[in-house]
Design a protein around this nucleic acid. Sequence first.
RNA 1: GGAGCCGUAGUUCAGUUGGUUAGAACGCCGGCCUGUCACGCCGGAGGCCGCGAGUUCGAGUCUCGUCGGCUCCGCCA
Length: 608
Amino acid sequence: MVDQIQDDGVYDKYRWLDTLDGWKRSHHNNELSAANLGQQVCLMGWVQFRRDHGGLIFIDLRDREGLTQVVFSPEYNSTAHERAHAIRAEYVVAVKGLVRERPDGMANSSLVTGEIEVVVDEWKLLNLSETPPFTIEDRDDAGEQHRLKYRYLDLRRPKLARNFILRHKATRAVRKYMDSLGFLDIETPVLTKATPEGARDYLVPSRVTQGSFYALPQSPQLFKQLLMMSGFDRYYQIVKCFRDEDLRADRQPEFTQIDIEMSFVDESQVQEMAEGLVRAMFKETIDVDLPTQFPRMTYAEAIRDYGLDKPDLRFDLKLQNVSDIFEKSDFKVFAKAGLVKCLKVPNGAQLSRKEIDDYTHFVEIYGSQGLAWIKVKEDGQWQSPIVKFFSESECEALKERMNVQAHDILFFQAGQADIVNTALGSLRIKLGERFDLIQDNTFAPVWVTDFPLLEWDEEEKRFTAMHHPFTAAQPGELKTVQENPGAALSRAYDLVLNGQEIGGGSIRIHSVEEQQTMFKALGISAREAEEKFAFLLEALQYGAPPHGGIAFGMDRIVMLLTGASSIRDVIAFPKTQKATCLMTEAPSTVSKKQLAELGIKLREKKEE
RNA sequence: GGAGCCGUAGUUCAGUUGGUUAGAACGCCGGCCUGUCACGCCGGAGGCCGCGAGUUCGAGUCUCGUCGGCUCCGCCA
């Protein structure tokens, strides 16, 4: 009926399309209720489902807000009904009709608009649609490869659409809160200078200065510090940042940061502001009240108790250092280890041998050599492949230290400290999920403070900044930086929520001497510092105020707010793990002309 | 750079030890249907088993390579 060949042979399936002709939408599709009974309304949207009974025809009309059932009835309006047989999924239609109550027992309690329906007087076919490659509804029946290729269709799915509506509310909450505290939204450049430290830069070739490159910002770090030196006092920006590193379920090459900087403040003032911001976002998007004061823990405590610098405090298990118990043990694996840590799971003895084997493979990912364990039976007997190597006093000490009870399981990691902590800390998260220790809809924020200023980079054989090279050392630690760089503590802090790092910041260096000391500790020569950061070193000499700030990962926060398991579900047009866009097919090759203008010559492809 | 899982109809998947004509559900097309809401009933069409080699009398199934998607380690100040 719809596809026709015109007289001139041109295939034109759009000749029956209607125009709006001044029709105006009166309501969205999640809006009508019994309160609107008897009203004439005009709705527009996409056809979600069609249920053609031959006589009555029902369609569910969808827009971003929801669904409304529309009825075509031969008795009510036979012309409208006759034309409606041709309606298919995803056609775009406008209907004018009467809001009426559904017959007895026909209400649909799963729809907000389920008590009513709109019976059609007149309707317009605004556009046709090919049969979509996958069904547009919330039950996931398409793979991500298809969903990303047809992202614009995927985004019609209510579940996904809701994420972006919520994301908008989060953004709005940020702007409202920051404005209320006198922060100015100031834009910083996207074409900027490559930095030697940190992540790999995305580079943009300069046409005007051939052979030179801009870099896309990993963060507006230096610009926001310079804005403090300009006297702007309180700055924020919701800003795209770029890092050319490998992707993860919670990492995209371009991501959005809530970037904040303040002058004349110390850590506590930045943190107080930041807590208020996060509380406002949670309140105004999902109506959750976060605690009025977030707990704090030092980096050292986090590693000691949780093995990770982003502890998930939604459940209580803690790692225990048991190195001392086994110092002189006959069990050489423990005695010779740099660190031995134990994690007890109450009632964990139910784990099967296979599950334990799986956990063994799991910790191997982190470089662990193996996973030792002890199951405690009903009668208190220990079942374990390693206990036979323990002396009686070692068993007693362990029993007391770990407060061992019947049905417990103990897991051990022994070896190099960083591997022990990472492996056992990650296993802790896994076990928390396995034993359902994490309650739904709980949010456990925590500040992690007192980070080391520097960490040793084995590959480069030098210290690198743990946070970034502009982070101030704690009072008195400047001397430590020179004498024992690895021991110096910084004025950096991270905000962790449910085991995810959602924000990080620091009080910055505002004295040129301290900045030079820092560069020196990082093995950056005075010449190199001059070359890369001359503008910063100069600016610091013209009255830089004490300042500090924080940056939040907007995408990750929205993930937590929506419960999304992938960052791709809160980014409208995300990239695949290979950093490509399946829809636009970016990145792509460019013409020789474009390359020539940039003075770029591609390496010849080797012939096979 | 490395490890793992996956790739079969438009979609989601099944496919036994390698064996004849590769199946199901949903979707699509046609017919019937006046209270459905993932409507129902009847009928039909639809396949480069990701791609390329190899083993074999014979490959969706085994081997190697390759491309693509996902998860993770490294990396991500």
